[in-house]
Design a protein around this nucleic acid. Structure first.
Lengths: 147, 147
DNA sequence: CCAAACTAATAAGTGTACATACTAAATTCG
DNA sequence: CGAATTTAGTATGTACACTTATTAGTTTGG
């Protein structure tokens, strides 16, 4: 078989695709129109109201140019408000609109439920092991604490 | 912390980013200019010369529209040749050029070596476990065979 | 044989994702 | 205070990744 097939890089790309597809399908079925990144941004915003784009970019581990585009679309959908910070006119304070908050709250159980479907062939023990390894590898939790 | 942070979907996205970045850096250092997908396509082509775009799309688990664009770029770089199939004028037979084959062969050890760097914080046992779980979850190898 | 169904590839449109370059504003330092 | 640096955000360009629609060619069925 091709050299690359069993390598982490290739496997991760495949999982990323599967994950995106499951997410898109379930969210659409639930009657919403949000991508994984848009949901992550909204969820992060719910926990950090008033954060600026650079701060949000760091929270969701994305480029600031990417986040700019994501926020742009969320603003157009009326889910996020962008206000210039009085104390720093370069920065924009981001907050969820009522509609934005309503959509995140409605989607949280949907998103939680679909996680298991991303890895349907893993047993429960394997699923937990995967989360542990992926979290450790991605630096989110190297062995306990939270950031 | 944000609801989404410890979910497979989010973790997989982070790993995908890390993977892409490590790949880009190491390949660039080695003096080449190929993305992960371009490498995967070339490697697959090495194993299946004369395949058409739809077939290649299936091999690397990508959309045929995506593969069309990837092949387009590889053709422009002179790494792939695209010839209309005599027996089916809709299809294009893909083959590596000499330069294309040379680049894949030169990159294989580089790509193999960088895999470990994608997951540097995992122990060797954890690394093997991750590959096993990811392969099982992505349907590439549920416990042995090849696809 | 020819219309209908199917298939390979391209085209167009949306959404990440990142690098680089640029503008504007804030901070630092002499 | 004013120049140099840093920072926040936007703009541009490249590269995936997928959906839907279209074009061109092939196969099938009546």
């Amino acid at each position: 078989m091709a050299v690359s097939s069993l390598m982490p890089g290739h496997l991760i790309r495949r999982l990323h695709q599967i994950s995106s597809q499951v997410f898109a399908q379930r969210v659409k079925e639930a009657g919403f129109d949000l991508t994984p990144v848009q949901f992550a941004a909204l969820d992060s915003l719910r926990h950090h109201p008033g954060i600026d784009q650079a701060g949000l970019a760091e929270k969701v581990a994305k480029d600031k140019a990417t986040i700019g585009a994501v926020i742009e679309r969320l603003e157009q959908k009326g889910l996020v408000e962008r206000l210039i910070n009085r104390h720093d006119k370069r920065a924009r304070k981001l907050t969820l609109t009522e509609e934005g908050e309503a959509q995140v709250l409605a989607l949280i159980p949907v998103v939680e439920a679909l996680q298991r479907e991303i890895l349907p062939t893993l047993s429960e023990a394997e699923y937990q092991q995967f989360i542990y390894l992926a979290a450790k590898a991605s630096g989110i939790s190297g062995g306990g604490g939270e950031g």
